[in-house]
Design a protein around this nucleic acid. Structure first.
Length: 474
RNA sequence: CGGGGCGUGGCUCAGCCUGGUAGAGCACUCGGUUCGGGACCGAGGGGUCGGAGGUUCAAAUCCUCUCGCCCCGACCA
């Protein structure tokens, strides 16, 4: 069996080892593209459910736009082209016919959706348009990494059109908060919400906001972005409406997305040397039942295990009954721990005698002898407790790995030693940002939403416009 | 795209330097005994050695080119 490199020894190897060993994903014959295997795809489905519910609850609807985009459409927004052109995959032939106008495989859908919005929007009465799409995207990345950066990936992308700048800004922030709440509630992954610097913002946006998580190795992961597009795409794609005052106006746009990268975030936030640790709310299996085979266990033990599984399913608990007899209980314990199942339930002759089952928590490895009566209720409570504990643990980790500094020497020193977020005043200049990046590899992850101006720039000593969160990032 | 490393049964690797009939452990299949922290015995199946070309009587091994993957940088969700 493939050994998993301990997380404490080599984080990168641990990450790829555990993904492949747990069968979340595998490399494919296509360069830069991975296969998301059933156990990994189940997590994505749970992410989709949780997110889709929230997106719809805030008034958005789903639609689907074409994968292929005519070259001419991409060219319409100058910053957008410049930002995405290096990453675009092209279709130049259909069958053996060379296309008059090449098609690009969408790296994002502003261009095609903007084009349609121009047709659909005539009046202020048509606004807002609040559409989301679940789709795949292709970006020709130089270097790929399972879940974190692959040539093709899955995501949701919201694209909205509004009557006023204020509405667009409110939408952008609504989604940012939605993402934060989702990550923290469902994934037990704390995130910092904030605004991106000019140099880090989306190609074609006025302002980009992001949520940033901290991984177990002290590097930051951008977990989601929400862009206020201003009227840039409206002008480029001629998305106009007649306003209440009869004047012709450009709409105010937003776009926002999160991707399958979130799965990488879950892995790197909660995993340990024994493998994966899944937050119950997105765990493909929340409980695995391991019956202890002794004697005629199929007659004596298995029926109890089946009954417990049925009771749990009735409470909407995702449960797997591992009754395979090719493996020993000890093997199954290790296997399901590696696969990150939050709660294991062991049941054998001894337990049946005592009218109990043995529960083992993945997060703290606590063993609990639980009486058979109201076992499902106890398990539901335990799953909630595990979810809570994982979030609090991650929050503590982030607090322990966030350092405020006031001098450049201090900033460099902290970044060399213990990784994590480093908070320091910044003057707002791209020059300081770039030189800090060049000298420390750390980038400004984002700037807090609340006004935090004050102090002097950690790099140049001019007045600070904000306390910036620096980190080495994925 | 620059620097480094690696491609040999499903996985991890040995063999390559010094060319001479492809190996190990794990995994897999079948039978049996087991099973409360990664069981054991017995019998099996499976590899044109990443690909192409070259040198040679003979290439996993030597030479050239090429493709892929991993790690570190620059770019990005």
């Amino acid at each position: 069996m493939t050994e998993i490199t301990p997380r404490s020894e080599d984080f990168s190897r641990w990450y790829t080892d555990v993904i492949r060993r747990a069968e979340l994903a595998d490399y494919s014959p296509v360069k830069g593209c991975m296969v998301i295997r059933p156990y990994g795809y189940a997590i994505w489905e749970l992410i989709q459910q949780g997110l889709d519910r929230r997106i719809k609850a805030t008034g958005h609807v789903n639609a689907y736009f074409p994968l292929l985009i005519p070259q001419g459409l991409l060219l319409k927004e100058a910053d957008h082209v410049e930002g995405f052109a290096p990453q675009v995959a092209w279709v130049t032939k259909g069958g053996d016919e060379v296309l008059e106008e090449p098609l690009l495989v969408r790296p994002t859908s502003e261009a095609i959706i903007g084009t349609m919005y121009a047709k659909w929007i005539q009046s202020w009465r048509d606004l807002p348009v609040l559409i989301n799409q679940w789709a795949n995207i292709v970006r020709w990345e130089k270097v790929t990494r399972l879940f974190l950066r692959t040539t093709e990936f899955l995501w949701q992308e919201g694209h909205t059109a509004h009557e006023t700048a204020e509405e667009a800004e409110a939408e952008t922030l609504t989604i940012l908060r939605l993402y934060k709440e989702f990550c923290e509630t469902e994934l037990a992954m704390p995130v910092l919400e904030g605004r991106k610097s000019e140099s880090e913002k989306f190609a074609g946006a006025d302002r980009t906001y992001s949520i940033e998580a901290l991984m177990g190795d002290g590097r930051a992961l951008q977990a989601g972005t929400s862009h206020n597009l201003g009227q840039n795409f409206a002008r480029a794609f001629d998305i106009q409406f007649q306003a209440r005052d009869k004047s012709l106006q450009y709409i105010w746009g937003t776009s926002w997305g999160v991707t399958t990268r979130l799965i990488g975030g879950i892995i790197m936030t909660h995993g340990d040397d024994s493998g994966l640790v899944f937050p119950p709310r997105v765990a493909p299996y929340q409980v695995v039942i391991v019956p202890i085979p002794r004697g005629d266990w199929r007659e004596t033990v298995l029926p109890h295990a089946r009954q417990i599984a049925a009771d749990l399913r009735a409470r909407d608990v995702r449960v797997f009954l591992d009754d395979r007899d090719a493996y020993t209980p000890g093997w199954k314990f290790a296997e399901w721990e590696m696969r990150g199942v939050p709660l294991r339930l062991e049941i054998g002759p001894k337990d049946i005698e005592k009218g109990q089952a043995l529960l083992v928590r993945r997060d703290i490895r606590e063993k609990i002898a639980a009486p058979r009566e109201d076992l499902p209720g106890r398990i539901v409570d335990l799953l909630a407790a595990i979810q809570q504990n994982l979030f609090e643990r991650a929050l503590r980790f982030r607090a322990d790995h966030t350092t405020e500094v006031s001098s450049y020497e201090e900033l460099k020193q902290v970044l060399e030693g213990r990784p994590g977020f480093v908070v320091a005043p910044w003057c707002g200049s791209a020059e300081c940002e770039a030189s800090i990046k060049a000298e420390t590899q750390a980038t400004i992850r984002n700037l807090p939403l609340e006004d935090t101006a004050g102090g002097t720039c950690v790099r140049c000593g001019r007045p600070g416009i904000a306390r910036a969160y620096f980190a080495k990032a994925y």
